[in-house]
């Protein structure tokens, strides 16, 4: 069974949003994903990292950690901040719910993570930070034509 792991720690600056999603996309190429699967993961990572920056740390520059694992056909991604935390996770995850409507937030971040990944789990407590755990099965179809699967899927 294929296994691999990586950990990434970076400043909660908005310029790192692109860096974070591209890095995870690069890590997942060993699963031979389709372009669509890569785009799905990039979107979900972008959502979680953006949330850590604007809601978790509220603009302060602190550290965000991403931990990625490949377990067979599965990609597991954890995005961790030690910021403000969420009092009511269930409510926060409802589509359109946002505490920063004045900043043009659509309240669709968790909905996007849910839609683009297979599983989503959010652990959070006020003042203790937030851990977003997501996974996606990157299915290899043995019968699929090689061209359709082996794109150089990362756009740097």
């Amino acid at each position: 069974m294929q296994q691999n792991e990586m950990r990434l720690e970076f400043d909660s600056r908005s310029c790192n949003e692109a860096f974070a999603r591209v890095t995870v996309a690069a890590f997942m190429t060993q699963l031979n994903p389709t372009l669509e699967e890569v785009a799905d993961v990039k979107t979900a990572v972008s959502e979680a990292v953006t949330n850590a920056i604007i809601h978790g740390y509220e603009g302060r520059v602190e550290k965000i950690t991403i931990s990625c694992q490949i377990e067979g056909e599965y990609l597991l991604v954890e995005v961790i901040d030690k910021g403000k935390g969420i009092a009511d996770v269930k409510r926060a995850m409802e589509p359109l719910f946002t505490t920063k409507a004045e900043c043009d937030r659509a309240g669709m971040g968790f909905a996007f993570m849910e839609a683009f990944m297979d599983t989503l789990d959010v652990q959070s407590a006020p003042d203790c930070g937030t851990t977003v755990r997501m996974s996606k099965r990157i299915a290899r179809t043995e019968t699929g034509s090689p061209q359709s699967r082996s794109f150089p899927a990362v756009q740097l």
Binding site: A106, M108, G109, A111
Partner: peptide, 14 residues
């Protein structure tokens, strides 16, 4: 456009 997340949705809806 090759990438857009929900920040883009907020931008358009705003």
């Amino acid at each position: 456009v090759s990438f857009m997340d929900s920040s883009g949705i907020g931008m358009i809806l705003g």
